[in-house]
Design a protein around this nucleic acid. Structure first.
Lengths: 114, 114
DNA sequence: TATTGTTTTGCAACATAGTTGCATTAACTT
DNA sequence: AAGTTAATGCAACTATGTTGCAAAACAATA
């Protein structure tokens, strides 16, 4: 599982992960491993527009302290989800303490651009 | 339902809406009305960190053409979700066409700040 | 090696969000 | 009033995600 994440450039949905490991391990086990890897700061999770949970390896997260200020991009056509290596400025909001930001962009990816 | 959204400053989750209307109408009906109101551009929807669908009235959306560039804020403590009336600049990404952006901030709201 | 204790896994059952098909009711039209 | 269309209720269903518990795997110690 670790190796998979290291080799995979894109984010993977839980559905896909459960599917890929379905004859190696149980659904619950997949969920539990993902939970553990996330707690250890090796991967991070976020929700897609479809409501599914997606996981990707952490480039910029250290253990326990995720700062996912980078946006995720989901292609409307092929459904692929990427972590974009850009940072987006979040303005501070009056009387609000902002602890994390999740940015999900939707559109067309390079390949589906034709 | 319309009146509720006009009076309610915050976003409402589907769970809350189904609950509030449960002796006025059926679950399916709530979903269907929400879908219709969204298509008509009266409300817009987005996903919370909890994976639930949230709805809020549209201040800046015209029929059929939503431009939800404003962020939503979900309080870690009380769970309340607000639409924040600020716009966040999304940089253009090479070889990607960005059609919509969903920004979900998490933190502490004014009231839970103490 | 045998014994004990801890962690991980499989399995089944469960909870909940959301969808769908279909029959019934309500609303609208002429 | 009759006929058409749209909205609703209901039940069944799908799918994601969670949980309790027993079996298995692993580690450590005597």
């Amino acid at each position: 599982m670790l190796r998979l994440f290291q080799e995979e450039p894109n984010a993977l949905s839980v559905v896909e992960l459960v599917e890929r490991f379905k004859d190696k391990m149980n659904k619950s086990t997949v969920y539990r491993i993902l939970e553990r890897l996330e707690n250890e700061g090796i991967i991070h999770s976020f929700r897609g527009n479809d409501g599914l949970t997606w996981y990707a390896k952490c480039a910029d997260c250290s253990s326990g302290h995720h700062h996912d200020r980078h946006p995720h991009f989901q292609c409307r056509e092929c459904g692929k989800v990427e972590c974009l290596p850009v940072s987006i400025a979040i303005p501070s909001i009056e009387k609000h303490t902002i602890e994390s930001a999740q940015i999900l962009l939707t559109g067309q990816c390079a390949e589906c651009q034709g």
